[in-house]
Amino acid sequence: MLDLVINARQASISAGFDVKRILPFRERRMVGPFIFMDHAGPVRVPATQLQSLDVLPHPHIGLSTVSYLFGGQVMHRDSLGVEQIIRPGEVNWMTAGSGIAHSERFEDPATLAGGQLEMIQTWVALPEADEETAPTFTNYQPHELPIFTEPGVWMRLIAGDAYGLRNGVQTHSPLFYLHVVLQPGTRFGLPQGHPERGAYVAKGQIEVAGHFYSAGQLLVFTPGQDPVIIARETTTLMLLGGEQLGPRFIWWNFVSSRKERIEQAKADWAAGRIALPPTDNHEFIPLPQDKSRPASSASAAPEPLS
């Protein structure tokens, strides 16, 4: 019923910003097309340290980044010239394709009030035919993301299709991604029609087949099985999965079906051939001094930054 349980590990995405890293994992690089997942927060630092959380401009290729907030707000700037604040209930969907650079800044001191800053970022690998597509960015507002409720269940469809819900979020392959809140005692099933499915426990505790799982754990389910999830307390889940795209190489912030493409991206960033955001171009994250080769989706890889 369960292929694997992944326990989040601590990772650093900036000098003062540690996160819980879920994907990639040495024994399971992807769930459907999802190749990366970070859970940041709740963040509790003095307002005077707000700038230390900033993620400086950095590059991506071959993927879409998906940012979703539980609390607080983040300022996104990218090399397309986009400046967009993301708030809870919205989705920032950035498709890197052939190459993009972006930053994530925490500029509003109110963001840290009461430790409310909390976000999930995932990366979705692109099909081979779309890996070199032109980069794009779209912010989706809450009214564009359908919500479903029934006794004990609240859910928002972030992207894809599940439980009969669909929205206009532009994806490149069949997938699903949902924010689900369950009340204590609620019994809940996984969405049908997707070969790979996972459930990340962001808050609370669930029971599956007599075993208990808590915050910071990603459950990867066996294809074809239909387990029942029971909430043992008020629980927040992120459900994700879809069709597998095939092996991918990953190094730092780069994802590709071709190892040589990642080597090219490394050279492009080091040489300044990937443009910086026009309104955030005075500093950036340099290429890591790591001499390792890109790793495939079936093997180990250097820890990426968001």
Rank of each mutant, 00 (worst) to 15 (best):
V74H: 11
I206P: 12
K203T: 13
Q289N: 11
L239G: 05
G81F: 08
V208G: 11
V43H: 04
G193R: 11
L56M: 12
F106N: 03
G97T: 10
I274K: 09
R87E: 08
P286M: 08
G216W: 01
R261G: 01
T234H: 13
V180P: 01
A134C: 11
P142I: 09
E196K: 13
Q289C: 10
E303L: 04
T171S: 10
F36P: 14
A11N: 03
G72H: 11
S292C: 07
R156P: 05
V31T: 10
Q244F: 07
F284I: 05
K291C: 06
V180D: 04
S64L: 05
E260T: 08
V82T: 15
A40N: 04
Q289I: 08
R105Q: 13
I6N: 08
S14W: 09
L165P: 00
I86Q: 07
S257M: 02
T235E: 12
R9Y: 09
E131T: 06
Y213P: 15
Y163V: 02
R258Q: 01
M1S: 09
T235S: 15
S299T: 10
P288N: 06
I147L: 13
P302E: 01
T171P: 11
Q10Y: 05
D3S: 10
L80S: 05
V169F: 12
D268C: 04
Q84W: 06
K266P: 13
E263C: 14
L240K: 10
A101W: 00
T138D: 08
L165I: 00
F212I: 13
G160V: 10
G272H: 09
P191R: 02
L239Y: 05
D226A: 14
Y68T: 03
A267C: 04
D268I: 02
P135F: 02
F148Y: 09
S292T: 12
L219K: 11
A40D: 02
S103F: 08
M30R: 14
M75L: 15
V208C: 12
A231I: 03
A40R: 06
P286R: 09
S257I: 00
S296V: 02
G193I: 03
S52W: 04
V169C: 07
E303W: 01
S173Y: 04
W251S: 01
P191C: 00
V169E: 08
A129Q: 15
I206K: 12
L2A: 05
A159M: 07
N167E: 04
Q205K: 15
P59C: 02
M37V: 01
D130A: 14
S173L: 10
L190Y: 05
L4Q: 01
F34T: 00
T222A: 09
A199C: 14
H282Y: 06
Q121Y: 06
